[in-house]
Amino acid sequence: MSTPHPGGGEPAHGQWAPPHAHARKGRRKWPWVLLAAVLLLAGGCAALVVGLAGESDKTVRVRYEVTGSAKDVAIAYTTWQGGALVTQKESHRELPWRKELETKGFVKGGLLAVTTGKGGGTVSCSVTVNDRRPWTATASGPEATATCSGF
C-alpha cells in the first residue's frame, strides 16, 4: 500500500489516494440542471393554467362561416362546453352557412373543417373570435377539405 502524494497534489499513477480525493472533481451537474428545467416547466404550466382560468370566466363570441360554389358539403366544428372542446357535425349542407355562438370556458385549439362532396366545387371557411382577425382557408375539387384551426 502506498501513501498519499507528499506535496498535496494528485498522486502519481498507481499511488494510493484517499476515497475523497476525487469526489470534488467528478461532482455531477446534470441533476441540478434537470431540477432547474423541471422547476421552470412547472412554473410555466402553472402560469398557463392561471391564465386560462382567467380567460375561461370571460364570455367569448365565435363566428363560423362557410362560403363557396360546392353544392353538398360536410361541416365539422368545435364548440366549448364546460372548458372542453366538443365536435359538432353537419352534413349535406348548402352554402352559405353561418353559425355564431357565445361561450364561456373558451380554450384555444378550435377547428372548422369543410369537405366538398363527390361533385366538387370550392369552399372557404372563416372563423372570427371576438372581432379579431379571422382564420381562413380555401379548398376546391371533389372531396377537398378547407380547415381553419388554432383559434
Rank of each mutant, 00 (worst) to 15 (best):
F106A: 03
C45A: 15
E10K: 11
D72L: 08
A36D: 06
K71M: 00
G68E: 05
P18E: 15
V66Q: 01
T147L: 15
K58N: 12
A42W: 10
A37V: 03
P31T: 05
K104H: 08
V107C: 05
A17Y: 03
G44V: 04
K25E: 13
V107W: 02
E55V: 01
L34T: 15
G120R: 01
T122D: 02
R27F: 08
P19K: 03
R93Q: 15
R133M: 13
G141I: 11
S149E: 15
W97I: 07
R93A: 11
L39V: 13
G83K: 06
K58C: 02
G68A: 02
G8A: 04
G8L: 00
G26L: 14
A17H: 04
K108P: 06
V107F: 03
K58A: 14
T116S: 02
R63E: 15
E10H: 09
D57A: 11
W30Q: 14
T147F: 06
R63T: 15
G109T: 06
G82S: 14
T136L: 07
K71E: 07
A84F: 08
L39H: 05
A144P: 04
V123S: 07
A146T: 04
C45V: 13
S126M: 04
K108E: 04
H92N: 12
G26H: 14
S140W: 00
L41D: 13
K29D: 13
R24I: 03
V127D: 13
G9T: 04
G26P: 02
E102H: 09
L48G: 01
A36C: 05
G51Q: 05
Y77C: 01
T122P: 01
P18K: 10
C45G: 11
C125S: 00
L85F: 01
A12D: 12
P6K: 03
